[in-house]
Design a protein around this nucleic acid. Sequence first.
DNA 1: AAAAAACAGTTAACTAGGTTAATTAATTTT
DNA 2: AAAATTAATTAACCTAGTTAACTGTTTTTT
Lengths: 160, 160
Amino acid sequence: MIKKNINASVIFHIIKLSETWKRNGDNITQEFGITTQQWFILLLLVKDPNILYFKLNPHEKPLMAKELAEALNVSRANVTNLLNILIKKKLVAQVEDSFDKRRKRLSLTDAGIRMVEKIEKVRNEYNKRLFAKFSKADKETMIEFMNTCLMGMNNQVLLK
Amino acid sequence: MIKKNINASVIFHIIKLSETWKRNGDNITQEFGITTQQWFILLLLVKDPNILYFKLNPHEKPLMAKELAEALNVSRANVTNLLNILIKKKLVAQVEDSFDKRRKRLSLTDAGIRMVEKIEKVRNEYNKRLFAKFSKADKETMIEFMNTCLMGMNNQVLLK
DNA sequence: AAAAAACAGTTAACTAGGTTAATTAATTTT
DNA sequence: AAAATTAATTAACCTAGTTAACTGTTTTTT
């Protein structure tokens, strides 16, 4: 009924890749007692420069929950839930902004920083093996391709 | 604290791309009253040849729930839940296998087939615009890159 | 041929991650 | 001073996922 189609095939590959990577990510983070999603929040709070959000929105001050919601593309209420888990685990601390009492600034605790550092070693090792067969140019080609796709996707949304 | 790293950047691009695509997919399927996940099950049941699972596991007979679980990489119990929703929506029908009463064969109802056909038009149009800037060779390069990654990832899992 | 093992599916109780709508409190705008 | 906006929370809910215990059928073993 449905015919072979290279566009559809590209999409299915991207999804499969992302899912597989996430599943492997879960294996890694599980050993540290957190989920991939929770780990991703820790990376946002230490401002991992590889995260796309920071390329478009450079940040000086510690992030607020509102910005976290923006970066993760989820609702503000959901971020409250996610943060409560990380705060209960003593990985994240929330401090009232002294200039604007509505705001709360987020930062990692010492335990949070240590955890990110430990996971970072595993991640780098894992990625290094994963991409062993590719040259720097290969990777740059990939990134360019994906950036073009991302721009196309955002335009298609805006057209609505 | 964390340095720039092209490997990490590639991964974040893949994740972002997959998420954005999924969100846009939700926009499309929502209009038809289903989720992206439910739509994906419909595509598996009509054996969309672009799905990676069928490239590795060609199938003659109608799929069983067990195979759906394998293709989606989720638990058997979860598939029961997902199917119940689609059966309630009268998009999927389940028929006992006459040779082995344990098995139940799955197929789309007429309404299910019509829905897939309608969504198919929207999907093709969407993908065509999305990849307008790329040549066939570009797309093939991408697929090859992603296939190599996928093989690498599976090996890393097996090493455990 | 009876017992044991394997298989396909379901149910129940649970978790993670997500949503919207209503509410509180602080700060800005008019 | 009143109204509007902003940041965060809470409550009630949904979807997608899990494991463990169970039912019934078919196959394998002895």
